[in-house]
Design a binder for these strands. Structure first.
Lengths: 341, 341
DNA sequence: ATATACAGGGACATAAAACGTCCCGATCAA
DNA sequence: TTGATCGGGACGTTTTATGTCCCTGTATAT
């Protein structure tokens, strides 16, 4: 049954949404019947008119009848309500998860997609799709969008589509070279996103593993300066969250460096910063780019990370309390919620 | 699954309608790809603009991709189309038709596709697509599949795809030359099916309109004997059903022969046999190949015929009561059901 | 190589639908 | 009887959907 829903959702993306709404409407009427339009609208936190359209539809279908005293469920409506019961779990599981995560992590908006990115590859695609949708919603003309590397963000890039909202938007890589594969690097993704949306982009060309002195020289370059100052005006940060050890490995840390990192208690990584469980910065990649305080200044910080393996990292990064939106999956969500506190 | 659809039909009739449309759109694109907006709009009898909105949505969902040559289904779109197959019957009320036909004709499985093959050319394609799917399901390693000629079976051939199920399968023409156009002959189709699926095939080279004596000689040929003995082990018969007069005309019967045929009461034709309304053999094409009793021995007899013009013929052939699966269309189904008895 | 037909995407005026808002007579409960 | 609340009607406004045309690029046939 769940498969059917997934299938249908590919053809009707907002099917679940509508199904939820109608179900809640039916349920509310059941609890409040007989109830008038206005009262119901208030109870459901919607407007009178919009509710009216829904009600008219359900009335035509014969799920509710209308008397002078107000609306109430017909027998068939009652039946439908009962029949839907087994669906409700699937239908609302995610919303419920999201709300609980929201409270636990103190993030203003949490979106949970189905599945576990560690197990099913399509979940990462779903994270990307949702990420792209959210970005499209929050982006405004002329925005600076700082993007990091990583497969989750790459997935967002692949799901972006052109839209008027991206007018004069600039995608800027959050950090210089971090030693990852080129197709997952911030530079690559910034350019990919620009290409997909019709926006423009900047690059931050910083060789990997540069000596600190060389870095200092590089920072003074006008081209680099230019990008850094743009990053200072970042309005939206789009980033992934990594498990500290995994990220360090991917970035070819030596065993000694790795041991050192573990010693500091690092559990999460984002834009080159490594954080411990308390959310304190314990290590930084030797490169230039977006500073942590600039992330805090950004209006929207959009974090994307899925898979139960990311749970600890997500919890750690959430301590930054600068995230506005977290997009994750069931795998991570369940693990997070089952963890202590 | 069916219950969920019923529920949804009650709770979101509007969306289910949209689901139908989208499905049909996907299917049309499949049949016509690559196809442009305008051509598609015409084919689907809708306007360019309205189709465009739909297409944009499906594109965002990733179900189809767009090239300079036109639109075509993505792999995912293809997958969705396949996955939806079991839904289609319920979605369009065809399951009900199928069940009624099943009872009336006494066939173990009936599948009804939308439309009327007499009116819309794509219906024949659809019959072929479904036929190919069913064949793929029933076929087993090492099977002998006897195939006849005709446009319906040709359509099946064009929709077959490689699959592990076709390992060591042999496609064998059910009958020798029947005087039809070469692209619709059994020989051609057997070879086409083998090519499409990666299976092997045999040919039955029998010149049209051979004298009975010459036929007897031919039968003794080792090559021919070989194929005939293979036909004796036929496990699956894949055949079309024709209207007797139409088939005779197509096979260049003289007016006298035709009159004679009509005289006998022939109404249907299949693998060179002509049957009357009672299902009795009243005439045979002078050629060699699969015998009627061998058809009865086959485990699966898959009949494909659509269009209201075929209704009488389908009813006649059903009297053989050896069919396992009948694939037909709405046109034939309604006509069959409205007929007496 | 070149012509041609057809592809998708952009643009824009207009039609249509959705929505917010108010009003009205009917109805029910007190 | 009265007062609150009901559903349904009406209507202006906003948003969305739709019809229509044009443009540029690209396959394909010549």
């Amino acid at each position: 049954m769940r498969r059917l829903l997934e299938l249908q959702q590919k053809l009707l993306p907002d099917l679940i949404q509508v199904l939820r709404q109608r179900y809640m409407l039916l349920r509310s009427i059941y609890h409040l019947q007989p109830i008038g339009r206005r009262g119901l609208a208030q109870a459901m936190d919607t407007t009178e008119r919009i509710l009216r359209a829904e009600v008219e539809l359900l009335k035509e279908t014969g799920l509710l009848h209308v008397t002078a005293a107000g609306m109430s469920l017909s027998e068939e409506g009652q039946q439908v309500l009962d029949d839907m019961e087994p669906l409700v779990g699937d239908l609302f599981g995610l919303t419920d998860l999201a709300e609980r995560l929201q409270k636990k992590l103190g993030i203003s908006e949490v979106i949970v997609v189905q599945g576990n990115a560690d197990q099913s590859p399509w979940v990462k695609e779903e994270l990307g799709r949702v990420g792209a949708r959210v970005l499209k919603q929050v982006v405004q003309e002329g925005d600076i969008v700082a993007v990091t590397g990583g497969s989750s963000i790459a997935s967002v890039a692949s799901h972006l589509t052109p839209s008027a909202s991206f007018k004069n938007v600039q995608f800027v890589p959050a950090r210089g070279g971090l030693g990852e594969r080129v197709e997952l690097q911030a530079n690559t993704l910034a350019s990919a996103m620009a290409a997909k949306t019709g926006a423009s982009y900047r690059l931050l060309h910083v060789p990997d593993r540069l000596h600190p002195e060389a870095l200092q020289t590089l920072v003074k370059e006008p081209q680099v300066q230019d990008v850094l100052s743009l990053l200072g005006e970042t309005r939206i940060v789009l980033h992934g969250i990594g498990d500290a050890v995994t990220m360090a490995r991917r970035r070819n840390y030596s065993e000694e460096e790795l041991a050192e990192l573990v010693e500091t208690g690092a559990v999460s990584e984002a834009f080159g910063y490594y954080f411990n469980e308390a959310g304190e910065t314990v290590h930084r990649m030797p490169t230039i780019g977006l500073q942590l305080e600039e992330v805090h200044k950004a209006e929207t910080v959009l974090s994307i990370a899925g898979g139960e393996s990311k749970a600890k990292a997500i919890l750690s990064f959430a301590k930054q309390s600068c995230q506005n939106v977290l997009i994750t999956d069931e795998g991570a969500a369940y693990t997070l919620l089952s963890a202590r506190l």
